[in-house]
């Protein structure tokens, strides 16, 4: 499977990654090679095989509905790029 530059840009956009125009050809070739590798999977017929999303054959444990956390805003916001009045600030969100 080979990707073209537009596809790579589309994927980069979906993943919110800015890729310099000059680097696009490199990604095109690397990603295409990786997909070629990945497509070796097609050599094996998997009809009827159940997907395995987890190595453990276990089930979800349930947590008691208890409040165990306390306010640590100051601590957490000390490492934030931009805050004011306890809010995290980001460039204007337009709806």
């Amino acid at each position: 499977m080979s990707l073209d530059a537009d596809e790579v840009k589309k994927i980069a956009y979906l993943a919110r990654l800015k890729i310099d125009e000059a680097d696009i050809p490199g990604y095109v070739s690397n990603l295409s090679n990786i997909l070629d590798l990945v497509e070796q999977m097609n050599a094996v017929d998997t009809t009827g095989v159940l997907p395995m999303s987890h190595p453990l054959d276990a089930v979800q444990r349930l947590r008691e509905d208890k409040i165990t956390e306390t306010n640590q805003r100051e601590r957490f916001q000390a490492i934030a790029p931009a805050t004011e009045d306890g809010l995290y600030l980001v460039p204007q969100v337009i709806e």
């Binding site: 790579v8 994927i11 980069a12 800015k18 990604y27 990603l31 980001v90």
Partner: peptide, 28 residues
Amino acid sequence: VDLMDMYTRSRGEGFGAEVKRRIMVGTY
């Protein structure tokens, strides 16, 4: 300059090439 710019540049500049490659393969 805007939200999208913050996302794409923070991530584009903050991650190295191999990380970006894998994120893109996974996204695809």
